[in-house]
Design a protein around this nucleic acid. Structure first.
Lengths: 345, 345
DNA sequence: GTGAAAGCGCTAACAT
DNA sequence: ATGTTAGCGCTTTCAC
């Protein structure tokens, strides 16, 4: 804590002058680079403290690192994302890296802009969570800063992938519902906006797996899917649509907890009790799913581990790794009170 | 969409060469500055499109604007914050400004680091949501980029303030509960971490107002406050603490919906039904509070308007305003099923 | 209306 | 081990 000049920033030159050394020396100390004597290091450190100097990230960006990790999040409402970020923060806490977050917004266009913003701000690494821009764009972008893509089941030679085994997760849910005796099980998924890579998107995998398991149990005629979005509003619309069908499903598997919350509202409006009249399951095992008044059966995919791993992979890439890594977590089912045997009759 | 060089960025010099003009001209077109002929503008624009040029924000930072608005959020879990950001995005959508978000983390130290990160990245403006660093630090920081502080009831000459009239909000809740017949009304608040500015913090105002209204109704002996934090976990701990008291309260006013959610878990564990055994109210009127299974009585403070206003004030400051503005929204009560008359006896 | 050139704060060759 | 210096991509005087 020292007095800081209010108009002009303290620069590396000020520090150098104050310590009576060259700017190079200061720069080296800052980056703990090779070739500084302990004595020099001490003098520089002292000068830095006295002047309250902080490196100007923007200036650094022109030459070297910014010590910034950029994160793209589809939105800020999905309560699963903070789990991922907690993991990431945990891994980066001991480093000099700072995380900045941008949101992808409503469509691929705004998402592209958000990713570009990260690149233009010269982040040292990027974590793209469930991106919906075309794959080619991802590869292009990953040609710049080291990139980890979280979500899609795609293997790439240029970026690392962190993902949940959504096939296992979806299978767990559908089998669970079938095991309870349900036959008319419906699904709320996310409509593509993703030309050319639908098959790799986690929401597609959850939906496709749902259909596969239904078929494997001879329930192909009961398949009912509403494609909206993984949001509260999407869940609401999806449930409304599914409730309009006849005969009505006895269970709904929402591809995300957030969508399940929206479905809950629709069910309530329709006067249906959960699970007495309708079972409901989600995905992500967000903290809110555990709330006793909701008690939503869900799939846990350990966002903390995913975030921590993403952080590790990013730092590894920054340090020079060029080979590509794929990391997958295996989800588990967390049965709660929102699922039960279907009503008799 | 054009081919972009994979190794080297397209720079302003490339564009200038391609268009057969000077870099100055390109720069002017980019910033729609004064003194470019329509013909020149056209040629430059064409070159920009052909080359797929994007300004390098980090380089811009060295001289002029970064077209970046930095937002500090205490955390990413509070579902009220996205409401604020939606408002902000709405206001900035038509501009060239990009929003980057950092989180304040667990304490004032990490928050200071987060704010510094924004400053060091040379943002053109900052929105600090419910900051907990000392007021002096805020004033110091606001001496740099234009700053809007959202939350604290502080007037400053150097930054703008956007806030909710928390006194009215808290009063609405407590009066509502008293009106229902409750006397033993407890409060879950946030423990200070904020040396020297407690009185201005919104959580303090909610707590103090609670006590004042209780006193005004002759209920000073029934005052019971648990200070934890505005988080799920904090609400859980707070409720546990309050339930341990004897006689037990018949209603709890949580200072934030998120804390109310946590309280819900504690109440359930204790085998108490809401509102039959215990009424519960929150603050923020988050979307989740409206979920029928929760149906939480809450206070609406229109985060959208707050965010939009913050955006407007920021742009005004960037354009040169130096006088200080204070903007306050008036909250309203949204009664739902979580509050009802106390159990008889 | 247009362009040449200086310089923002830093890092990385390259001397010494 | 330490210092000198040339840029990174852009904006901005200041000439023309």
């Amino acid at each position: 804590m020292t007095t800081r000049d209010r108009r002009r920033r303290v620069t590396i030159a000020d520090v150098a002058r104050h310590a009576g050394v060259s700017t190079t020396a200061v720069s080296k100390v800052l980056r703990s680079a090779y070739g500084v004597s302990p004595a020099m290091r001490e003098r520089v450190r002292a000068a830095i403290d006295e002047l309250g100097y902080r490196p100007h990230a923007a200036a650094r960006a022109m030459r070297g690192r910014t010590y910034t990790i950029g994160v793209l999040l589809p939105d800020l409402r999905n309560p699963f994302f903070p789990d991922i970020l907690d993991g990431l923060y945990g891994h980066l806490a001991a480093t000099d890296y700072q995380v900045i977050i941008v949101t992808g917004g409503p469509d691929a266009k705004t998402e592209t802009r958000a990713i570009d913003a990260l690149v233009d701000r010269q982040v040292d690494g990027m974590l793209l969570v469930a991106p919906r821009v075309p794959r080619a764009r991802l590869e292009e972008v990953a040609g710049g800063p080291p990139t980890v893509v979280l979500g899609p089941h795609e293997k790439s030679a240029v970026y690392d992938a962190v993902l949940d085994d959504d096939e296992i997760g979806a299978e767990l849910v559908v089998r669970h519902l079938i095991g309870l005796g349900h036959r008319r099980i419906a699904h709320i998924g996310q409509r593509e906006g993703t030309r050319g890579r639908a098959a790799a998107m986690l929401h597609t995998i959850r939906a496709v797996t749902y259909e596969r398991v239904m078929r494997e149990h001879g329930l192909e005629d009961e398949i009912a899917v509403a494609l909206t979005s993984y949001s509260e509003e999407g869940g609401y619309r999806g449930a409304r649509e599914l409730l309009g069908r006849s005969p009505r499903p006895t269970a709904i598997f929402a591809g995300a907890d957030l969508a399940a919350f929206g479905a809950l509202t629709a069910l309530h409006e329709a006067g249906l009790a959960v699970p007495a009249d309708m079972s409901l399951a989600g995905y992500d095992n967000t903290r809110l799913a555990a709330l006793s008044d909701i008690s939503l059966t869900s799939v846990d995919q350990d966002g903390g581990v995913m975030g921590r791993t993403a952080g590790r992979l990013l730092l590894e890439r920054i340090e020079g790794r060029t080979s590509s890594v794929h990391f997958s977590v295996t989800p588990t089912l967390v049965p709660r009170r929102s699922t039960a045997p279907p009503p008799p009759g």
